[in-house]
Nucleic acid binder design. Structure first.
Lengths: 237, 237
DNA sequence: CAAGCAGAACCTGTATGACAGCTTAAGTGA
DNA sequence: TCACTTAAGCTGTCATACAGGTTCTGCTTG
């Protein structure tokens, strides 16, 4: 059975209504921002109660396939990493995924991202990446700000890769990363360790700005090696 | 604003109820299979109507964070790639993601997967991988079966990598892959091209069985190079 | 005639009540 | 003690109601 068929058949009326709505989006080639029929219209068309249509809408809204807003009609949504982030956080909190496994995947993905970024970045993107690295150094004493700039640094790289799927995945991992980042930071007890972590980011930024994918990949690899070491030394499995 | 806070605050009562329920899962350390309070109980506890609780449940069920079933209480769900698959399919159908971009990400991920699989596979897993490769050759004339075994081959590799996040991502991409696979197959018009595609899979399987990560990575890279070539020659952007 | 404004029509968010059908737990009887 | 029956609990769907936000229409005014 295909995935869609599974979703459609299971869950009864709501599930099949979800299928009908997604089919409607696809068949009519609706693009992000386009409006869907009203709940009442769909209820009449599909011969179900408004309750069922609403629950189907909620399901699609949870995956950010559509967007809901009071008074307005539902619209097709631009792709968003929010739901993926929640799914992964759930996997970690229920011990189905370990932080180390997350980092191995991130390392794999971000090494590719940084290579693409080095090849494709615009000057403005290079500047944005460097700016985040500088902001990190400037925030050495403000942990919260430091983390924010660290995350933004990686997002900026993903953006410069010009492949939105990488942006999606980086975003998907940032939810759980934000929850574990302080652990790694606390485990870097010496000024040297903390300085080195900042320096790693600067090296990555330099390589991207220089348009040197090999150097960028190496620097990103070292960055993750160091990060995993820090997390392990903090006792994370 | 954090991701969770965003989800909680937006969407009004339902959004905040989703937040309350996820907090409940986390605070009580509920594991997959554990039962949640009934809709009525939650409605009373959180001081909202059953309608709101139901819509919150639907939202969580859409992300497969919980599972719903008639008559039974909602349970915490094991992590599943279904929602991610739908999200990505939506991104492709609305022209926010191209197939080529998907393949670049898959290539990146699966080259790592195959390296891990070569290092970590059990004998049973190696046998399963080889079996799918053989099944592909046996299905040369049955396109549907051939595709099924191709997808299963890649799932088996992800499983052998012993990192569930890779399994999650491979699953997330298989929905859209299944929809575009026939395009690539049709573009392989000569028997040689089709034979070569099968042979690529066999080479990957051999390297994994031999425990040779370098050879496995190279073979997987060639497989994706060839696949992307096939898709491009079919006119896919 | 154009621009802005007011009101009507439409739409969503939430609540309540009802009932069918399924599941679980309690209790009963052998 | 165990199997069975029954009652209680739970979910799925429907209908209805209404508050409050949005959109469109048409009118008023400059």
């Amino acid at each position: 059975m295909t995935l869609e068929a599974e979703v459609e058949s299971s869950g009864g009326l709501v599930g099949s209504t979800v299928g009908e709505i997604t089919r409607l989006i696809r068949d009519q080639d609706l693009m992000p921002g386009d409006r869907l029929p009203s709940e009442a219209t769909l209820a009449k068309t599909l011969q179900v109660s408004r309750t069922v249509v609403r629950e189907a809408f909620r399901s699609l809204a949870a995956m950010r396939i559509i967007e809901l807003a009071t008074g307005k009609r539902a619209t097709v949504a631009p792709i968003d990493h929010g739901p993926m982030s929640l799914i992964i956080e759930h996997g970690v909190h229920t011990d189905q995924i370990s932080i180390q496994q997350i980092y191995d995947v991130r390392r794999t993905i971000e090494r590719r991202i940084v290579a693409l970024a080095a090849l494709r970045r615009s000057d403005a993107e290079a500047a944005a990446i460097e700016a985040e690295a500088r902001a990190m150094r400037a925030s050495l004493s403000d942990t919260a700000a430091l983390m924010r700039h660290d995350l933004a640094f990686h997002r900026a790289l993903a953006h410069a890769s010009k492949n939105p799927v990488f942006g999606l995945l980086v975003g998907a991992f940032q939810g759980i990363t934000a929850q574990t980042w302080p652990i790694g930071w606390k485990s870097r007890t010496t000024p040297d360790a903390r300085e080195g972590m900042i320096a790693n980011h600067e090296k990555i930024a330099e390589a991207v700005t220089a348009g040197d994918p090999e150097a960028a990949v190496v620097a990103m690899g070292l960055h993750f090696d160091e990060s995993v070491r820090a997390l392990l030394s903090a006792g994370l499995t």
